[in-house]
Amino acid sequence: HNLTITQGKLFFHYNPKLCLSEIHKMEEVSGTKGRQERNDIALKTNGDQASCENELLKFSYIRTSFDKILLRWEPYWPPDFRDLLGFMLFYKEAPYQNVTEFDGQDACGSNSWTVVDIDPPLRSNDPKSQNHPGWLMRGLKPWTQYAIFVKTLVTFSDERRTYGAKSDIIYVQTDATNPSVPLDPISVSNSSSQIILKWKPPSDPNGNITHYLVFWERQAEDSELFELDYCLKGLKLPSRTWSPPFESEDSQKHNQSEYEDSAGECCSCPKTDSQILKELEESSFRKTFEDYLHNVVFVPRKTSSGTGAEDPRPSRKRRSLGDVGNVTVAVPTVAAFPNTSSTSVPTSPEEHRPFEKVVNKESLVISGLRHFTGYRIELQACNQDTPEERCSVAAYVSARTMPEAKADDIVGPVTHEIFENNVVHLMWQEPKEPNGLIVLYEVSYRRYGDEELHLCVSRKHFALERGCRLRGLSPGNYSVRIRATSLAGNGSWTEPTYFYVTDYLDVPSNIA
């Protein structure tokens, strides 16, 4: 807008934040220059609390790290170098490059900038070799853009010569660093050979998330399962459950009422301010606690030095998902009996873990797994792929695949051998790939016309006998059925096997 004052003059007093240069501009645009008398524009009460600059400061050096910015700028000295009290560095987070010096300023003089007072450097006698002032900004957020400017702080001049310097606002972004852990990993099994893994992005990506790394490792069953005799009275049979499938998407929606109208769909109840505040506090606490764990609990591995020492970490090797089922080394339970199943799973520490690289999504279907087997899954978020990966501390989750139908069934015939004193040795093959492992066998036998009897055969007993022995049988026709019990439950009964026990007292003698 054009402003013209045809008559009258300007009068400025007691404006401590208004620089004289701005008042002189007002004289020019209003056409009143030359009308004012000496005392109409006070030299001592206008701009006496402001830094009124008329020179431009330029930054000469900028260096960044993930949490620091090192700045240096060209030296500046007023005509009387004693008038320079120091520099004021202003900075704040700036997602967009549209910041002005006066953003967030209120009537009390406060604003949204963080201000650092910096002492002037030592003055050199040689004007050509003056030290460049600077400042190291610490405690910054990774991968965050900051708006920065600097200006001088000078003393009051009796001659009211307006001098000083100020830089333009520059924008500097800190470097990326390792992201925080992925949030809320959930693993479920939808079949006997697959596990579905879902997660949420890290709360602090500290860069642009480029991919996720998912490692999985087959877990050995508890050692007590191999040692305890679950045929003993009072000892509860062990059981394991597989990871249940995901709930429906509708039930997972946030901010939804727990109660549904019987007449149909209901609208979600909005969260109160107290609920939102509580969630923010919980989120802040979780982030602080995660940072504490990362800094205190997890110790970084030592990389190899120039002395030739090897990095103890196993090298990563990509495998196809079809090879995942046989990740671990199978060892027989008892070496003397080769027909026992290889369900003991000690994992070799030198073995390469299978892994998958996930790009542009937060889910993965891990296939080719062994049925009813526990897996430990390790999830890392990465925001750099080359020249070397920059990934987060791992988040861990466990899951067990679903049982395989008929995996616990005894394959092959049940054979028998009759000894003296009416002892019958029953023999059968253990299931080759049971659900988890076989903890015991149930032997059901009966003599024709009598009630059915049951015998429990422990895992250890089966390994020693290759089956079991029935003792003290009365003469007669017998039928026997056997079924295995694994961590997933009972298998199917075998087809009945028949044998006849004679009275050993009636056996004919070869003595003449």
Rank of each mutant, 00 (worst) to 15 (best):
M427R: 09
L232V: 05
E258L: 07
E282P: 14
T502I: 03
E310H: 07
R400V: 10
F285L: 07
H254E: 03
R370L: 09
D273I: 14
G472L: 08
V397Q: 03
V359H: 15
G436F: 14
R319W: 13
E417Q: 06
P387A: 10
R481M: 11
E356R: 08
R313I: 12
A336R: 13
Q256A: 15
N477W: 09
Y259L: 03
A263L: 11
Y504M: 04
T401I: 12
C231E: 01
P238K: 11
G368R: 11
E265Q: 12
V345F: 10
N326V: 05
R483A: 09
S458W: 14
L464D: 13
S492L: 15
L453V: 06
T485K: 14
K406R: 07
F462Y: 05
K317L: 15
F499G: 00
F355C: 13
D222W: 14
A407Y: 08
L237V: 11
P244A: 09
L277I: 12
P238C: 02
E350K: 10
S341I: 08
P434Y: 03
L228W: 14
Y478R: 00
G234W: 07
N421D: 15
P245Y: 08
I276E: 06
N477V: 04
I366H: 01
P387L: 11
N421R: 13
E356G: 09
K317V: 06
R316V: 04
L455G: 06
G207W: 01
T386V: 10
A484S: 04
K361Q: 11
H254V: 06
D204V: 14
S248W: 02
G325W: 15
V424G: 02
P431Y: 01
T347F: 07
R466P: 07
A399F: 04
P314L: 10
A488P: 02
S348N: 14
G467Q: 03
L228R: 05
S486R: 02
P300D: 15
R316G: 03
E404T: 10
A220K: 08
S367H: 06
E452F: 15
N208L: 08
G449W: 07
Q219L: 06
K361A: 08
E350T: 13
A488D: 14
E281R: 13
G322H: 08
T340V: 06
S398H: 11
P270F: 14
K361F: 12
Q384R: 14
Q380L: 12
T401N: 01
F355D: 03
N421E: 15
E290Y: 05
A405F: 14
T386N: 06
E388A: 12
E362P: 11
N422F: 02
S251A: 05
T347N: 06
V365L: 12
E495Q: 06
S509I: 15
W242T: 11
A399V: 09
D409L: 12
E404M: 15
K278D: 11
F298I: 09
S398P: 10
P332M: 10
N477P: 05
V397W: 11
L213H: 05
N208Q: 15
R390C: 10
G308L: 09
Q252G: 11
K406L: 07
V358K: 09
S315I: 10
E265T: 12
L369K: 02
T340H: 03
A335P: 12
S363V: 14
S479W: 13
F372T: 03
S479G: 05
S486A: 03
R400S: 09
G322I: 05
S320W: 06
C391P: 01
Q384K: 01
D311K: 15
S304L: 11
R286L: 07
Y478V: 01
V424K: 00
Q256M: 10
E310V: 13
Y375W: 06
R376A: 07
T415A: 06
T307Y: 14
V329P: 14
N435W: 00
N360F: 05
R319V: 10
T343V: 08
F499N: 00
D222E: 08
E227K: 04
D409A: 03
A484V: 03
F289P: 04
E362F: 08
E420P: 14
V297F: 13
P244F: 10
T415Q: 04
L213Q: 14
N421Q: 12
S367A: 15
R466H: 12
Y448F: 14
G325M: 14
N208F: 10
S341V: 14
L280R: 12
Y500W: 11
K233A: 13
L470S: 00
H416E: 09
S486D: 02
N490W: 15
S274V: 13
Y448M: 03
S251H: 14
N360A: 13
E260I: 07
M427Q: 05
S363Q: 11
A405T: 04
R483P: 00
H254W: 14
D385M: 12
G322Y: 03
A263Y: 07
A395V: 10
P431C: 08
T502P: 09
S458C: 12
L473S: 01
L225A: 05
S320L: 08
S444M: 10
T502M: 14
G264L: 13
L440D: 07
D503V: 11
V299Y: 11
A263R: 12
L235D: 08
R469P: 03
E420K: 14
V299L: 08
F298K: 01
L455R: 07
Y504G: 08
L487H: 00
H454R: 03
S320D: 12
F289K: 03
L437T: 01
I366G: 00
V457F: 15
F337D: 04
T272G: 12
L505Y: 14
R481A: 09
P431M: 03
P244N: 11
Y292L: 09
P354V: 07
V423S: 07
L228K: 08
S509N: 15
V296R: 07
R483N: 15
S474N: 12
K271P: 02
D408A: 02
S243Y: 05
G476A: 02
S474M: 06
Y498I: 14
A407H: 15
Q429T: 10
D385A: 15
H352S: 03
V359Q: 13
C269I: 08
P205F: 15
Y441I: 01
S304A: 15
R376M: 09
F337S: 07
K271C: 02
S492F: 06
E258W: 13
R466I: 09
Y259A: 09
K361S: 10
Y504D: 15
S363E: 15
S458Y: 12
T502A: 14
S274P: 13
S243T: 08
L437P: 08
H211K: 13
F499C: 11
T272Y: 12
F246Y: 13
L225F: 03
A381M: 01
